[in-house]
Amino acid sequence: MSQIESSKGMFIDTTLCHGCKACEVACKSWNELPANSAPSLTGNSYDNTGKLDGENWRHVKFIEDISDDRTDSRWLFLSDSCKHCQLAGCMTVCPTNAIIRTEFDTVYIDHDTCIGCKYCITGCPFGVIEIGHLSGTAEKCTLCYDRLQVGQQPACAQACPTDCIEFGDVPDLVAMAKQREQFLQSTGNYKAELYGADKKILGGLNVFYMLEDKPEKYGLPSDPQLPQKSMLGGYWSSVFSLFAVGLVSLLSFRSYRERKFAEEEETTKGA
């Protein structure tokens, strides 16, 4: 594991995103990710990427938010990617330590170490990771690790025409985000709130968001947890099962012995 030199991240202000997908294109282009199979029309708004996966490390969500009585409607956009969590579920369950934290405090997959066991897929609460069809290893956003090493910002941030994706040191981004939150709320956007900027969500997300509505509206979990949350319960239930199986086996064993003894006694008496 590398010594942390600086904590790099992104502040995604969804109020500024207009769904142009320049970030998706830049990501694919820089990282030389294969094109999606054509035609791939999802039928879901203008979102034909569909989801994050091994070939799509960035995905602009199109959310058509229509009121129940259908008198009001709006579009919400969210440029989604790996959040580079401080408590990264994928990293904790990886059996080969192929998922590591870089000197930029980002979460990175070492493709030479990954065995493609797929366990990290179940460990991510955001459904970010998937196996790349070409590499056969887990794939996700690297925050353009190669660009960071030479002092450049990630390709998506550079390509964003509205500065919806701000790249920088996380403490600076958080300060900027809090100011933005105050501004939005002061101008009547009372539902605007930050997601992942503080430690409440998985110890803090290096890639965090300004949302215009509750997280669930964007398909984000309101309180994501590490997968180990359910591990302890599993161990306790196992102790119970071992105790139960042991007891039942012992009793079954004894009942046989007693029955055999009774039968033998009867035979002896009869003789």
Partner: peptide
């Protein structure tokens, strides 16, 4: 449409 468990989580 964007139900977290159904649309975001992935099966391994």
């Amino acid at each position: 449409m964007y139900n977290y468990e159904l649309t975001q989580l992935k099966s391994p």
